[in-house]
Design a protein around this nucleic acid. Structure first.
Length: 703
DNA sequence: AGCACGCCGACT
DNA sequence: GTCGGCGTGCTC
C-alpha cells in the first residue's frame, strides 16, 4: 500500500503514544518516521493498521527496545499550530499511567478534549485563529467589587498556604469561609505573577453553582470551566484557553486535574473527601491524589495544593497527622452561625414501619408554623425499593441484575437502578396471580407523599398550604429542574425539601432550621467498611445546611436541630456527631483501621473480572492469583480469595473480584507492574472462555 | 480499542 | 442465493 513510499532522506524516527490499551500489544510507544525531529508533547496523526489516529510524540523510553520488524510508516500529519504539551504535564501522565496500571497513550489521549481527536490540522489552525480573534474583541474582564476582609482564621490559612512546603489540608467547618480562602489565595497568586494559573477542583459542578458564581464575580473572564456538562465545542475551547495560558483560573471536575496548565501554581481540591474524585472507569485515578502529585511536579514554579473539607477523607486526615500534609483548622462558622443540636429518635421504640416518628413530625410542624424550613434526607429514590406479593412472597427482581426493581409510583413503573431496565407494574403477581402486591420500604417519592398527607392541614402565615419539594436524580433529570427547585427553597416557595444526598451538598439555604435523616441504619452496617465514614460525612454535610443565617435563627428564637432516626442510637458515630466532632470520629475510625490493617495503614488494589458466568470470572481470578506466585513484592502483599461482588450481577454480567493488600505501597506497585504483562498473556493463551473483561483498580473506594 | 476477515442462521 | 451474528487477529 502507501507504505511502499520510500522515506525522504534525513527522516528521523519518533516515538508516538496512541490511545491503545495494554492488551492490544500497543502499550509501548510506537515508532514512526518524521521529516524532522519532533518535540515531545507534539500532537500528530499517525497511520495505525487501516485507520489513522491521533497520537502524541513522547520521549524515547530509557531502555531502548528492539526495532519493530517491518518498515516504519511515516507520521501523517503534525499539528504544528498547537504548542506541545509540556514536560510537567507529561510527567504527570507518566505517573498516572504507571501508578494506575494503564498505558501512556490511554492516559495522555483521554486527557485531551474528545473534540480534538476529530479535527484535522487545518481545522485546528482555523479554530485557534478564531479563538485568538474572539479574545481580542472580548471586553477586558472586570472583576467586581472589593474582596471582603478576612477573619483571623482565614488570614492564618492564607499565610500557611503561602509558606507551606507541603500539601495543605484546610479543615474548615461548613460555613467557616473556606471559599473565601480559595478566592484570596487565587487573587494573591494572580496579582503576584501575571502568567500564573490556578486549578480549582469541585466534585460536581452542577451541585455547587455558588462556587462558580463566586469565582466569576471575583475574577470575571479569567475563569473558565472544564466539566462534562459542556458541549464538545465548549470543552475544546476551554481546554485550549487553559493550554495556551489564556485561562488563568480553571474550575472543573476530576478530569480537569489532567488539563494542560503550563503555568499552574495553585491547585484547590474542594470537598476533597468526595468519592466522585475517584474515577470509576478507564484509568481509575484519584483526582485528589493526582492533584497532590501534580503540585509536587510544579514545585520549581512554587506550585501549592490545598485540600479543603469539613470532613476530610481519613487518608488525608492521617497524612496530616503524620506530617505529610499540613493541617490548618477553621473551626468557627462565620457570622456566629450555630451548630445544630442532635436529636436521636430510637426507632426501636416506634411501631414497625414508621416512616417519620411523631416527635420529628411535630418538630417539623412547629418550624413550619414559625415560617422556617426543613430538609428531610432519605438516601433512596423511588416510591419503594421493592414490591412483593402478599400471597407467595414474590419480589420484584431485576431480570438482568442481582437487585430489586424499584417501584416508581409517578409513572407506575418498576425500574432497576443498576442497569436501567424498566417495566410496568404488573396487575397481579407474575408467579401466583394474586392481585395484592405491596410496596416494601420507603423511597423519597413515598416520603414526599406521606409528608404531604401529614402536613395537609398545616397553613403558612399567609394561609396557603405548606409546600413540599423533592430533589433526587429523578426530579433533577429535566433541564433546569435542579436550579428551579433550589431557587424555590431559597425564595421560600418550598417549606420542606425531601431528597437524596444531593440536597446535602453545598447549597447555602438561609431559613432551614431543621435537618432530618430518616433512614440512617442501612449505611451504619453496610458491608463496605468505608460506610461509617461516608455516613458521618453525609450527616455533617446535611447538618451544615441548617442554621446558616444566625440573625434569622436568633430573630426566630429557634433552635437549630439535626434529627436522626436510628435503631442504634448508642452507636459511637452519633456521639461524635452530637459534638460535631470530626476529630473524635476520625480518631476512632483510624484506630479501628489500624487494628484491622486497613487503609490508610495498608494499600489496596482490586482485580475485577466480568464474565457471562460467575464461575468463569472466579476461575480467571484464581488463575491470576496463581500467576502472582513468584513476583517481586509478593512476600509483602496479601492476596485474598476471589469473591463475587456484593452486587454479583449487573446487566446480565457476573462480577467477581480479588483483593490485594500490602502495608508497603512500593511492594504492591512492584507486584502490579510485574503482574499485568502476565495477566495479558494469560488472557490470550489460557482458557478464559466466558470472561468478558477485567481491570485493575488501584486504591479502590468501593467494593 | 477499532476494524478487518471469516464462517454459520433467517430473510429479500 | 445474500445480509449479518460476533469469534479471533492485527495494528509501529
Amino acid at each position: 500500500m502507501a507504505d511502499a513510499v520510500v522515506p525522504p532522506a534525513g527522516a528521523v524516527a519518533v516515538e508516538v503514544v496512541v490511545a491503545a490499551p495494554a492488551h492490544s500489544g500497543l502499550g509501548e510507544p510506537l515508532t514512526y518516521l518524521a521529516a524532522r525531529p519532533l518535540a515531545p508533547g507534539t500532537l500528530v496523526r499517525v497511520p495505525l493498521g487501516r485507520r489513522e489516529v491521533l497520537g502524541m510524540v513522547w520521549e524515547p523510553t530509557a531502555t531502548p527496545r528492539e526495532a519493530p520488524a517491518g518498515a516504519l510508516r511515516p507520521v501523517a500529519e503534525v499539528w504544528e499550530a498547537l504548542p506541545p504539551l509540556d514536560a510537567r504535564w507529561r510527567a504527570l501522565v507518566a505517573f498516572a499511567a504507571r501508578y494506575y496500571q494503564r498505558t501512556l497513550g490511554e492516559v495522555a489521549l483521554a486527557a485531551l478534549p474528545p473534540a480534538l481527536r476529530t479535527l484535522s490540522a487545518a481545522q485546528l489552525t482555523r479554530r485557534l485563529h478564531k479563538a485568538a480573534r474572539a479574545r481580542h474583541s472580548a471586553a477586558p474582564s472586570t472583576p467586581g467589587g472589593q474582596p471582603p476582609s478576612v477573619t483571623d482564621a482565614q488570614a492564618h490559612a492564607l499565610a500557611v498556604i503561602d509558606t507551606s512546603d507541603r500539601p495543605v489540608l484546610l479543615f474548615g467547618a461548613t460555613g467557616s469561609g473556606k471559599t473565601e480562602v480559595y478566592l484570596q489565595a487565587t487573587a494573591r497568586l494572580l496579582a503576584d505573577d501575571p502568567e500564573a494559573q490556578a486549578l480549582v477542583l469541585v466534585p460536581e459542578i452542577n451541585l455547587t453553582p455558588q462556587l462558580e458564581q463566586r469565582f466569576r464575580a471575583r475574577f470575571g473572564d479569567a475563569v473558565t470551566t472544564l466539566h462534562s456538562g459542556l458541549t464538545p465545542a465548549q470543552r475544546l475551547q476551554h481546554w485550549l484557553a487553559a493550554h495556551r495560558g489564556q485561562a488563568r483560573i480553571v474550575l472543573g471536575t476530576r478530569t480537569a486535574v489532567l488539563a494542560s496548565l503550563p503555568r499552574l501554581r495553585l491547585i484547590v481540591v474542594d470537598e476533597e473527601h468526595d468519592p466522585s474524585y475517584k474515577s470509576q472507569e478507564g484509568a481509575r485515578y484519584s483526582a485528589r491524589d493526582l492533584a497532590v502529585y501534580r503540585a509536587r511536579l510544579g514545585a520549581d514554579l512554587g506550585c501549592r495544593v490545598v485540600l479543603g473539607s469539613a470532613t476530610p477523607a481519613l487518608e488525608s486526615w492521617h497524612a496530616a497527622a503524620v506530617g505529610r500534609y499540613q493541617r490548618v483548622d477553621m473551626a468557627q462558622r462565620m457570622g456566629g452561625a450555630c451548630w445544630p443540636q442532635l436529636r436521636l429518635v430510637d426507632m426501636r421504640q416506634q411501631p414497625r414501619g414508621t416512616t417519620l416518628a411523631p416527635a420529628l413530625l411535630a418538630a417539623i410542624e412547629a418550624r413550619l408554623a414559625r415560617g422556617e424550613q426543613a430538609l428531610v434526607l432519605l438516601n433512596r429514590r423511588g416510591y419503594a425499593p421493592v414490591i412483593a406479593c402478599d400471597a407467595c412472597g414474590w419480589k420484584s427482581g431485576c431480570p438482568h441484575c442481582s437487585a430489586h426493581l424499584v417501584y416508581h409510583k409517578g409513572d407506575r413503573s418498576l425500574r432497576c437502578h443498576h442497569c436501567g431496565h424498566a417495566a410496568r407494574v404488573p396487575r397481579a403477581c407474575p408467579d401466583c396471580g394474586n392481585v395484592d402486591l405491596t410496596p416494601i420500604g420507603r423511597g423519597t417519592e413515598q416520603l414526599e407523599e406521606q409528608l404531604a398527607l401529614a402536613l395537609a392541614s398545616l397553613r403558612r402565615a399567609d394561609g396557603s398550604p405548606v409546600r413540599i419539594g423533592r430533589l433526587d436524580a429523578d426530579t433533577a433529570r429535566a433541564a433546569g429542574a435542579l436550579e428551579h427547585t433550589l431557587e424555590a427553597v431559597h425564595s421560600g416557595a418550598i417549606d420542606v425539601l425531601v431528597g437524596t444526598q444531593m440536597i446535602a451538598k453545598g447549597h447555602d439555604f438561609r431559613r432551614i432550621t431543621l435537618v432530618a435523616s430518616v433512614n440512617t441504619d442501612g449505611a451504619l452496617f453496610a458491608s463496605d467498611w468505608r460506610a461509617p465514614e461516608r455516613l458521618f460525612t453525609l450527616l455533617m454535610q446535611a447538618a451544615g445546611r441548617a442554621g446558616r443565617d444566625a440573625a434569622f435563627v436568633a430573630a426566630q428564637g429557634s433552635v437549630v436541630e439535626l434529627w436522626v432516626q436510628t435503631a442504634y442510637p448508642q452507636h459511637p458515630l452519633f456521639a461524635a456527631l452530637a459534638r460535631h466532632d470530626y476529630a473524635a470520629f476520625a480518631a476512632q475510625q483510624l484506630h479501628e483501621r489500624r487494628t484491622a490493617g486497613m487503609p490508610p495503614f495498608s494499600h489496596q488494589a482490586l482485580l475485577r473480572a466480568e464474565a457471562r458466568q460467575l464461575d468463569a470470572a472466579l476461575a480467571w481470578l484464581r488463575h491470576a492469583a496463581a500467576a502472582a506466585h513468584d513476583l517481586p513484592g509478593r512476600p509483602h502483599v496479601t492476596l485474598y480469595a476471589p469473591v463475587p461482588m456484593t452486587m454479583t450481577r449487573v446487566a446480565g454480567i457476573e462480577r467477581a473480584q480479588l483483593l490485594l493488600e500490602s502495608p508497603h505501597r512500593p511492594a504492591l506497585q512492584a507486584l502490579l507492574a510485574a503482574w499485568l504483562p502476565r495477566l495479558h498473556t494469560l488472557r490470550a493463551h489460557a482458557d478464559t472462555r466466558g470472561l468478558v473483561r477485567w481491570a485493575i483498580d488501584v486504591d479502590p473506594l468501593s467494593f
